[in-house]
Design a protein around this nucleic acid. Structure first.
Lengths: 424, 424
DNA sequence: ACAGTTTCCCGTAAATGC
DNA sequence: TGCATTTACGGGAAACTG
């Protein structure tokens, strides 16, 4: 009869933060004959909730009644949009908190009810409807947990109002779940996850059996228990990466330059036969919200060596955009002129060809001052000699100075074209 | 009769932000005989304020009455501390806003009143007192303006409650004002301003006559009108520097390494006869909250050249502490190996001797990764030759590589010791 | 003591008012 | 319209609370 729209958090509907305004809209689907009086709608939070079901109770702090309006003159449909609604927790509930505390706050589901009452031809009609289950949080730090709940609920049930869902949450098929995970990236950035990336995620979640796409993932494994040896859950880790992309990597991600989810083994397989200086970008598995690059180098005796830089997190990235980090990154070996070891984005794209457009050419010209930029540098000490005089390296170092000079040294190699791991 | 203590904002008393808790304390100075009943104190905001005096009206959102308590059993003194008080603006005052708008919000003075009433031996006694003038702000961005008002008021009047003070604010003698300005630095950091620094500030405010310390500064010059050619007032500029010191420069400031306030002329006078690589640190006069270093270099023909780096502001400094910037700063001239031009802190302190303890030796050892740090770099293109091959510089460039190596090249010079400009 | 949760509030951005 | 002022709220940290 009515079709409730959802309260919204920025891009995360169905999650409401206390003390922060939200909006909801209700539409009357039946057409009323000649309504010449005002039709009031009242919205209530957790109406008729059986006591003990939730550990926290909230109420709507602001005006909760509003008159319905004609939404669209073509169909005469009545609707009402509540704005500036705000939730506050009820303090001092008589007795202890209801729920036994098995559920975390982000697993506790609530709902918003709408009521209206009107009289037509002597008949009094009560209308009532309610929203999909809602998660209430008190701090944005709970947003990832809340969003996990919303995703899990909507992935695994069609029930409109199963507030006890997380009392015994069902498992998800990996095939369904992986699709949802990919969506998180595509709604954020316009680019989802490809098969290789999803395979790595599946193996991370399920072990190396993930090739069987009907394997099931438990709610706990997904977002409650920590990844073995790590202080965060799978979803917390993945969400930290989504945030990193959103704030600092959007152009690079959308250009498909971030392989992102690659196991260390796969990384070695991909890079070991490549030309020295070939690199790929992947997210840190050990730290939340970090991105690193791994490049291949060949040592004197022909051994292949892979190096990964300490992952960049939001703090560093807000001082220096990632493309500029790649552009200017330098390694200093003992007594040798600084050199950028990053030459070809895997498989064989010359670095500046890939990232050139993304470089931030902000030459500030505040005249009396000499402009300066930050350059990321790694210092690698050879542990062979203790105090090495300027050693002559097998490959002569590049001429120092102009950063852009590297450009001119690059020549395109004609390496066997294999299917790019970036293709979706 | 009572001695009201002040509501507090972090380190900025007498400024209250709407919606943010503050605290105030009242003490009863007379000793009451046997008070066996509770003595209630009520606090009111802007009680009995003549209408039209203020353009905004506020009220205390929270509980405004409290019972007095024995503060200290040795003297039996009664006192009451109001906590968690909160101010909110009254909306929709009947009629237009009172004040004609000549005054900005931070010039509008308010007060907090306290009342109590008790009966002793059949006599009913009313007690009333109030706070010093208060400034009410709605956003921390107004804090500097508010603090300017509080300083000016307390510098220039002893009246306890002249709420019309800024209707016609008196001028301040530079000698008084400079003392207050120095206090701002010493309360913040434990180090105030020396004579040279204050002279520069005085000249900035008054022109080159500031040597006469009885020159007067108007309120407008101090904090209302913009510095000629700049989009900010004198106080806004100075306060931005106080904030920069507080958040990013405390150790360097307290070590007396920041000359800070130096005119360009003085800078040249000080540096021109110094050894190449001698530098000083000063605050930007063109941008809010910026610090730069200026170093002297001698060109081939013996000319003295001063260079200043683009000022570092809080954004850059939170990515890289200032001491590390000084440590690692490099200049790249065409085709020449990067070199740190900063060698001696004026007058002649070897850089690492001065800043060594402040370097942030955060060698992160997350093993599989190669650590990396950010290095500030300036690229200087000689505009003499268009495409210069690695030119041989008159002084051979330093060996590249180890940053610390510079240390070993430094020798102490025995230059005439002049009185340090840093001494207070 | 501690972990989960909420409160507090700065600082930026957006909205509002004059 | 532009400027002054307020509101909004993310994000880090402190305070709370079982």
């Amino acid at each position: 009869e009515k079709q409730p729209c959802m309260p919204t958090h920025p891009q995360k509907p169905l999650i409401i933060k206390t003390g922060v305004q939200f909006t909801t809209k209700v539409r009357l689907l039946v057409k009323l004959p000649e309504v010449d009086y005002q039709l009031k709608v009242k919205t209530t939070f957790d109406k008729d909730l059986p006591p003990g079901r939730v550990s926290r109770q909230f109420f709507i702090l602001t005006n909760n009644t509003k008159v319905m309006d004609i939404e669209d003159y073509t169909n005469g449909c009545l609707s009402v949009e509540f704005r500036h609604l705000q939730l506050k927790e009820k303090k001092y509930i008589n007795g202890a908190k209801g729920n036994e505390g098995l559920l975390s706050v982000t697993e506790e589901l609530h709902s918003l009810s709408f009521e209206a009452c009107f009289t037509v031809q002597g008949l009094t009609i009560d209308l009532e409807t309610c929203s999909l289950p809602l998660v209430v949080i008190s701090n944005v730090s709970q947003l990832p947990g809340g969003w996990a709940s919303v995703m899990w609920y909507n992935l695994l049930t069609d029930e409109p109002r199963n507030l006890a869902f997380f009392g015994n949450p069902p498992r998800a098929n990996w095939s369904q779940l992986s699709e949802v995970l990919s969506w998180q990236f595509s709604t954020l950035a316009g680019r989802g996850l490809n098969k290789e990336q999803l395979t790595m995620l599946g193996e991370k979640l399920l072990g190396p059996h993930a090739s069987c796409s009907d394997y099931q993932v438990s709610w706990s494994k997904f977002s409650k228990e920590n990844i073995p040896g790590k202080p965060f859950s799978f979803w917390m880790w993945l969400d930290s990466i989504l945030e990193l992309i959103k704030k600092h990597l959007l152009p690079v991600w959308n250009e498909n330059y971030i392989m992102g989810f690659v196991s260390k083994e796969m990384e070695r397989t991909l890079l070991k036969d490549r030309d020295p200086g070939t690199f790929l970008l992947r997210f840190s598995e050990s730290h939340l919200g970090g991105i690193t690059f791994t490049w291949v180098e060949h040592s004197d005796n022909g051994d292949v060596k892979l190096n990964s830089v300490e992952p960049y997190t939001k703090n560093r990235l807000s001082a220096l955009p990632f493309a500029d980090i790649i552009r200017n990154y330098k390694v200093i070996s003992d007594g040798v002129v600084p050199e950028n070891p990053l030459k070809f984005l895997y498989p064989d794209i010359p670095k500046d060809e890939a990232f050139g457009r993304l470089y931030n050419s902000q030459r500030s010209k505040v005249h009396p001052y000499i402009p300066s930029t930050l350059i990321p540098i790694s210092e690698m000490r050879s542990n062979v000699i203790t105090t090495p005089p300027p050693s002559q390296s097998p490959e002569p170092p590049m001429t120092p100075g102009e950063f852009d000079m590297l450009n001119e040294h690059l020549c395109t190699f004609d390496i066997d074209t294999m299917s790019s791991p970036y293709s979706e």
